[in-house]
Design a protein around this nucleic acid. Structure first.
Length: 747
RNA sequence: GCCGGGGUGGCGGAACUGGCAGACGCUCGGGACUUAAAAUCCCGUGCCCGCGAGGGCGUCCGGGUUCGAUUCCCGGCCCCGGCACCA
């Protein structure tokens, strides 16, 4: 791969190369992990996790795509495991809010991140379990079901409570004597999870727990049900059922004949009578049947009711995120060993920083059993406790490889540092990354993890950088036969073949030219030859003109008396520099930059043809057929060709270097730098102004660019073509805008 | 369902701030050069009518604003991407 990158001619600072699988790098993953452990940003948690049965490993939520493993595409299942988790939610608010301060990022990515973080403002409210209700004995006195809601204003309409199948109370009740049916239903719902839920609609189902809770606002008893559509991992795993104002609850209540009580009147809003309900009303309205809050608009009620709940100690306002902490434990061999040991006496003990790195052993058995390959290497597992020096076992899971990529850009600034992940001053000098490009598929993976890690380093005092990437360009993927290229699909193309035939420069130029970089492209090399032709045209042009325009002592065109053709050529050159400069830098429209250069070359060929003393490229060995005598022509050609060569140098550096030398320059082209343009020249001289008559372009007049408006009006009316169209008609209006636009309205 | 981005020739795609729609490249056709071919150079290539000069239509559809709309506004259709029973 490295050889291929070099053959394609990618500019890369190889002296800063790092490999994240080497201890010189991953020891800093371990270092950072220990720092996060100290700050309670890393913790251990037993929970249901995404499990890929093919890779035999855990996956983070971000790594599950449409219910399948991001890496191999196998359907993901659920497992309960104890895992190391990084507390990304600590930064949820900051990650969300500062998304507004990333003007250099595409909206698409920012939106995806916002949705992924998923902030919801609402309230947690406790529904006490009704004393004396069935099953009350299994829970401590005073127990309550806490629900999360964004619509506390509808709480008077809460006629039942729904629990997720994974809710702890459901677990408790399923173990009660005689709860066989209960347990069976619960297990069935839990099994439904993932695949069923992801691949399509699953039927809303539930069962009555037989328990009763109390609506803390109405004080009415409400039944407690388990429902398969309530998510265990979001909010509190329990919701209040308000069938009148939530479509899901409405369907559920209809199916199981639970009471529907309307508490927000839509009458004012939708003009319908309140009793005609065929679906839930989640729109605006005024509260009805809501005790002391009746008559309030729903918005106001929300604030008042939250305050009331807080005052009475039955709930509080809260912010809920969809984002969850990042589980990083992986049961893979390739990954950073997690630097902790487990001691029978001392429990979990972090490996001291000064004994890092914990080396990944060289040999591993790949058992395919679903535990970490490291667990089978006794020399690795068995160690001594850093605290008591007694026998201890090492953690055998490794870190998600996304840990490696979450801060490597800082390491590039200081790749050889043996004392620290990087010297803060060095990253202070280089960072943040000015321009970052990658696939959009990283929008909620790498790009959110990196923003998280940058903040961790910042809070450790290592940097002052919050946002690691100032400008982000999400480049499109290159597809073949409508799919991402991959060896297993057999739809790859080999750049080496194309380099063999047309050269790396033509290939690179073509890739840049074929579409804007953000766009996904379907690969075809049909146009590759065209890029090669363009480079050949540039070569021939310079080759054949070098004798005439190369060398010292040729003055620039400033101050020379230029004829029309020379002025036009010069204008084109300056205008091209202006365009290409802008295309490369703020816009990164590489395709139009290349087309601008092609236009300039076309124009140069035409100009040479018009001077009738040069026959560029008619034969490979053609040379000037006459002697160029006009100083203006020579000067303009020199200026234009040199500008061209300087502008193609980013695209084809070696050829540009040679051409530059052919033009008689001793110093390299790098020293010559980027050509400058004169705005006055680029926009000077004559312009063609379309003349519209009743909205149709009927004529064009050629005028000096700085023609005054009233003069332009005069010229337009005086034009013969225009006069023809005005015959026998009355001119009602002549419009001149921006000093150059003419439109004539006639009756 | 929600959010984001789109819809322009045979194809990839241009069009900057509302001002010649289709730059540039590919494809295809023609010419020059050549004994011939390749290469190269030049010309043409949105659709329709016309021998021609020329004329008409044309940027998903329907309206609107404007002297003028691919561009701005309203409504609709379609496509792509992301999220999705998130309470």
């Amino acid at each position: 791969m490295k050889g291929q990158l070099q053959r394609i001619g990618i500019s890369y600072a190889w002296e800063r190369e790092i490999a994240t699988c080497l201890p010189e790098y991953y020891r800093w993953n371990q270092w950072l992990f220990l720092k996060m452990l100290e700050r309670d940003l890393a913790y251990r948690k037993r929970s249901n996790v995404n499990w890929c049965p093919s890779c035999n490993t855990v996956l983070a939520n971000e790594q599950v795509v449409d219910g399948a493993c991001w890496r191999c595409g196998t359907a993901v299942t659920t497992r309960e495991l104890e895992q190391w988790v990084l507390r990304i939610t600590h930064y949820a608010d900051e990650l969300l809010e500062s998304a507004a301060d990333l003007p250099g990022w595409p909206d698409k990515v920012l939106t995806m991140q916002r949705n992924w973080i998923g902030r919801s403002e609402g309230a947690r409210v406790r529904f006490p379990l009704a004393e004396g209700s069935t099953g009350f004995d299994e829970v401590p006195p005073g127990s309550a079901i806490e629900v999360f809601t964004t619509r506390i204003d509808t709480i008077y309409g809460a006629t039942f409570v729904l629990l997720a199948p994974e809710h702890p109370l459901v677990q408790v009740w399923s173990e009660a004597p005689g709860a066989e049916d209960f347990r069976r239903n619960m297990q069935r719902f839990q099994a439904q999870d993932r695949s069923g839920r992801m691949t399509g609609e699953i039927e809303k189902e539930g069962f009555d727990t037989g328990r009763t809770a109390t609506n803390p606002f109405t004080n009415a008893p409400v039944p407690v049900w388990v429902a398969n559509f309530v998510l265990g991992e979001y909010g509190t795993g329990a919701v209040m059922g308000v069938p009148a104002h939530d479509q899901r609850d409405f369907e559920f209540a209809t199916k199981y004949h639970l009471p529907i009580v309307r508490v927000v009147s839509a009458a004012a809003a939708d003009g319908k009578a309140d009793d005609e309900m065929s679906e839930a009303w989640d729109g605006p309205g005024v509260l009805v049947a809501s005790g002391e809050f009746t008559g309030l608009p729903a918005g106001d009620a929300m604030a008042r009711m939250s305050e009331a709940a807080e005052a009475r100690g039955i709930g509080e306002r809260t912010v809920q995120y969809r984002l969850k902490d990042w589980g990083i434990s992986r049961q893979r061999y390739w990954g950073t060993p997690i630097p902790v040991v487990y001691c029978d006496k001392c429990g979990m003990v972090p490996v001291p920083s000064d004994s890092l790195p914990v080396l990944l052993p060289k040999i591993a058995e790949f058992s395919g059993r679903g535990d970490s390959p490291l667990a089978q290497i006794p020399e690795f597992v068995n160690t001594t406790c850093p605290d008591c020096e007694g026998p201890a076992r090492r953690e055998t899971d490794t870190m998600d490889t996304f840990v490696d990529s979450s801060w490597y850009f800082f390491r590039f600034c200081d790749p050889k540092n043996a004392e620290l992940p990087f010297e803060p001053d060095t990253v202070g000098y280089w960072g943040p990354v000015d321009f970052y490009s990658g696939g959009v598929e990283h929008a909620i993976l790498h790009l959110i993890y990196s923003r998280f890690f940058a903040r961790v380093f910042r809070d450790l005092g290592m940097t002052t950088i919050s946002e690691p990437f100032t400008r982000l360009l999400t480049q499109g993927m290159v597809l073949k036969d409508g799919q991402v290229m991959s060896k297993s699909k057999g739809n790859v193309v080999d750049p080496d073949d194309m380099i063999q035939q047309f050269g790396a420069d033509a290939l690179r130029l073509y890739v840049m030219f074929v579409a804007p970089p953000e766009k996904e492209i379907e690969w075809t090399d049909a146009g590759l030859e065209g890029s090669w032709r363009f480079l050949s045209r540039v070569w021939r042009l310079v080759d054949q003109l070098s004798e005439t325009i190369g060398g010292e002592g040729i003055p620039g065109p400033d101050g020379l008396d230029l004829n029309d053709a020379e002025r036009a050529m010069r204008r084109k050159t300056h205008d091209t520099i202006r365009r290409v400069t802008a295309d490369l830098d703020p816009r990164v429209h590489l395709n139009t930059a290349v087309s601008g250069l092609m236009e300039l070359v076309n124009e140069l060929y035409a100009f040479c043809g018009r001077t009738e003393c040069l026959r560029i490229g008619q034969h490979p060995d053609a040379s000037p057929v006459g002697t160029l005598e006009r100083a203006g022509t020579i000067a303009v050609l020199k200026e234009s060709v040199e500008a061209l060569v300087r502008m193609i140098s980013p695209f084809t550096p070696h050829m540009a270097e040679e051409l530059w030398e052919m033009l008689g320059h001793k110093e390299g082209i790098t020293a010559a730098g980027w050509p400058e343009f004169s705005d006055a020249v680029a926009k000077s001289e004559e312009i063609v102004v379309p003349v519209q008559i009743n909205g149709k372009v009927r004529a064009r007049i050629t005028v000096a660019a700085d023609t005054a408006e009233d003069r332009l009006r005069e010229l337009a009316l005086a034009d013969a073509q225009v006069a023809k169209h005005l015959e026998g008609k009355t001119v009602k209006k002549v419009v001149v805008a921006a000093g150059r636009l003419v439109s004539i309205v006639v009756s």
